[in-house]
Every structure is written in C-alpha cells, then in structure tokens.
Computed example of a mutant assay.
Amino acid sequence: MKFLDLFSGIGGFRLGMEQAGHTCVGYCEIDKFSRKSYEAIFDIKGEWTAHDITTVRITELPTADIWCFGFPCQDISLAGKLRGFTTGHRSSLFFTVTNLIKQLPDNRRPTILFIENVKNLLSINGGLDFLRVQIELYQLGYDVEWSVLDSAALVPPTPRAFIHCRTS
C-alpha cells in the first residue's frame, strides 16, 4: 500500500511502514534538522514533499491508502504547558490534517490513518480532547481503535498513544 508521512520527523513511521512492505509517496516536516536527517536516511527521489502542513493544498497531495502522522504533542504532554486543543496551537495541527481529509473526494481519502501521540492525549482536559479526536475521526467515517504502548520495550522510554483508524 502507498502511504503519506506527515509530521515525519526523522522517519519513525516510515521505517516501520517500509519494513512492512509499504511504499512512501510523500512526506511533510517543518523542522529543518529533522528534514535533513530524513532526507539523508531515506531515498526520497521523486516523492512529494512539503515543509509546513498549514500551507499544503489538497490539489498537491499524492493519493495514498494510509496517512501516518504524529502531530505535535507540546500542548498535550505532561512535560508541556498542558494547553490541550482549546488554547494550544501546535497540537491543534491534528485538525489541519483532518481538514485536508474533509476536502478530498471519498475515492481519494486514505483508507487507514495511523496516528501517534503521547499517553496524556487520553486524559488532557478531563479526556475531552481525546473525545474531540474520536468524534472528528468518526465524522470523517473512520472507526477508531487506540492503545497505549509501553515504548520502553520499543524505543527510548516515553509512553505513547497510538490510534488506528479504518473507514467504515
């Protein structure tokens, strides 16, 4: 399957997706150092790319079966200021992605979304922000499943929440 790597960082999602046999058709990352690392690690020749998700136009996005993204956690993380979606601007970039999906015709929408964030996404603002995530995805036609992984067994120790969505 073809996938799009949004908020790509240095390519954690991509590494796993390619190891599973999937093909990356594009990536988006605003941090210049992360981009430089990503481009040094992966063969990105011929792929679509963008620097800032807020400037992406739907007409330029390649078609992909899967969208992978770990939207910014600064407003959600216990290490941050705990602003959540209400007053936090970085973590609200989740809705920038869902707005792009809303603009796509049904036959171009990704079938699967893999979304990653910190464990506190489940409880920030009394759980209301996670409820907003679920409602937003449900309204787009996705069934939502989530789990918290003990990343100490997988990556440097920080618990992460993973959301897997598939169209109904």
Rank of each mutant, 00 (worst) to 15 (best):
G16D: 12
G16Q: 13
G16C: 10
G16S: 09
G16H: 11
M17G: 00
M17E: 07
E18W: 09
E18I: 04
E18K: 03
Q19F: 06
A20N: 10
G21L: 08
G21M: 08
G21T: 09
H22G: 01
H22R: 09
H22W: 11
H22S: 04
T23R: 12
T23Y: 05
T23V: 13
T23P: 00
T23N: 06
T23C: 05
C24G: 06
C24P: 02
C24S: 13
C24H: 03
V25S: 00
G26V: 02
G26Q: 03
G26N: 05
G26A: 03
G26D: 03
G26K: 01
G26S: 03
Y27V: 10
Y27I: 10
C28M: 11
C28W: 06
E29G: 12
E29V: 09
E29N: 14
I30M: 14
I30C: 14
I30N: 15
D31P: 02
D31G: 08
D31S: 09
K32P: 07
K32S: 12
K32M: 08
K32V: 09
F33G: 07
S34P: 01
S34Q: 14
S34A: 15
R35N: 00
R35Q: 09
R35W: 00
R35F: 00
K36C: 09
Y38V: 07
Y38F: 13
E39G: 05
A40E: 14
A40M: 13
I41M: 10
F42N: 10
F42E: 10
D43T: 08
D43S: 07
D43K: 08
D43E: 11
I44Y: 00
I44E: 02
I44P: 01
I44R: 00
K45P: 03
K45T: 11
W48K: 04
W48M: 03
T49L: 02
A50W: 04
A50L: 06
A50K: 07
A50N: 12
A50F: 06
A50G: 12
H51W: 00
H51E: 14
H51P: 01
H51L: 01
H51N: 04
D52T: 06
D52H: 01
D52S: 02
D52V: 03
I53N: 07
T54Y: 01
T54G: 01
T54Q: 11
T54E: 15
T55W: 04
T55G: 11
T55L: 14
V56G: 08
V56A: 08
V56Y: 07
R57G: 14
R57H: 15
R57V: 10
R57A: 14
R57P: 02
R57W: 02
I58H: 11
I58R: 15
I58F: 06
T59E: 15
T59D: 15
T59Q: 15
T59K: 15
E60N: 15
E60S: 15
E60H: 10
L61E: 05
T63W: 00
T63Y: 02
T63G: 04
T63K: 15
T63Q: 15
A64P: 06
A64I: 04
A64V: 05
D65H: 10
I66N: 01
I66G: 02
I66C: 08
I66K: 05
W67M: 05
W67V: 04
C68F: 01
C68I: 07
F69W: 03
G70H: 00
G70Q: 00
F71L: 12
F71P: 09
P72R: 05
P72I: 00
C73I: 09
C73P: 15
C73W: 13
C73T: 11
Q74A: 14
D75M: 09
D75V: 05
D75Q: 12
D75F: 02
